[in-house]
Amino acid sequence: VCALYPTDDAETIRKNYTVLMRDGRITGLVEKPDSIVSPYAGCGTYLFTPDIFRDARETPRSARTGRLELTDVVDHAARRGAVVLPFVLSGQYLNVNTIEDLNLANFLCRTLHFEANRVSLVIPAFNEADSIGFVIRDFKDRVHEIIVMDNCSTDGTADIARTLGATVCSKPLRGYGDALRQGMELAAGDIVVLVEADATFRAKDLGKLLEYLKDADMVIGTRTTRQMIEQGANMDGLLRWGNVFVAKLIEALWWGLEPRFTDVGCTYRAIWRDTFHKIRGYLRRDDAAFSPEMMIEVLRLRGRVIEVPVSYYRRRGGTSKHSASRWHSIRTGLRMLRLILSKRLNLS
């Protein structure tokens, strides 16, 4: 019995095999046909009786590949008069031979029941009492779970978050990367979204990230679109072009994987939990270099990372822990460069 997929797409048939049929029986198989002789693509799924071993012994090796091909064996059986029957499949079919095929297969699977996926939001926080309440209220109706990783704040950040219904984990944390990594470990959702506690990002962009996540393993925001940067936001020319430079360096060093990046420091991103589980053993940075580390490790996994523009606003109170001054920005950039080069040289 041969499983067949009915289709009018000639390219799908050419990538697989098709069959010759008469009176409901298969009389021959044609591997990767030049001309379309039937509206069926073979799916590579079979049901055999032990007689197939006789045909395997009698079938010569393929002149094209030099190997004994299963389609040739089944074709031999059909042409000698054995009963070979079709089993016509319904639904969608995709033959996965390339990374593009795999991405399309992932998209089809993820799209089928995407709305059933639960979304967890992880927020790293240290003394963000002026803004944490705004962030939680902005996102709480759009996600299923909010986890605030509080680095022992002294200004009441944790109390505000708990009052608004967030799950708060207050403990000493080694930094931004450590907070995000531990928060993702605690997240129960199928999708994990990361966002800052300083109100520089908005929930209005969440739908955009989730829509693109159907077609990717991780979606990251970019703050380099000038029209989407609020006046007064901490994204001057030096920061913006510094991010672009470091992002393009990742592109150049992993050119064969065809990434397209313009921002390496944007916290706002969404990742499938199973993708995080695949890369978590390689995420070692506790500082701001954790952001490009995530991007690189998904690439090394040969996963798909898509970047989309997001709005960027002035922070509400406090100062940035990574770019409060030019010196802080330069130091953060140098740490990122060191991380990127060590990953490319397989030193970490």
Rank of each mutant, 00 (worst) to 15 (best):
L209H: 03
N117P: 02
V192W: 03
K204L: 14
W255Q: 10
A252Y: 10
T59I: 15
A116C: 10
T65S: 15
P33C: 13
V310L: 08
S153M: 07
N16V: 03
P60G: 13
S348D: 04
C109T: 11
D23P: 12
D263E: 09
T224I: 07
V298P: 00
M149D: 10
P86K: 01
P172Y: 15
G221Y: 04
P6G: 08
L186W: 04
H76I: 14
L112P: 05
C2T: 08
P33H: 07
R273K: 14
L4S: 01
T7N: 05
G221L: 15
G207C: 11
G221D: 07
A78S: 12
R25P: 04
R226L: 13
L164M: 11
Y93M: 06
T222R: 04
D205A: 14
L85S: 07
W327A: 10
K171N: 08
A3G: 12
C169N: 10
N117I: 05
W255T: 10
I147Q: 00
F48W: 07
R269I: 03
R331F: 12
F276V: 00
I279G: 02
D130P: 02
F139W: 14
D217A: 00
W255P: 09
A187K: 01
T332A: 07
L94Y: 02
M295L: 12
V298H: 00
D138A: 09
T222D: 08
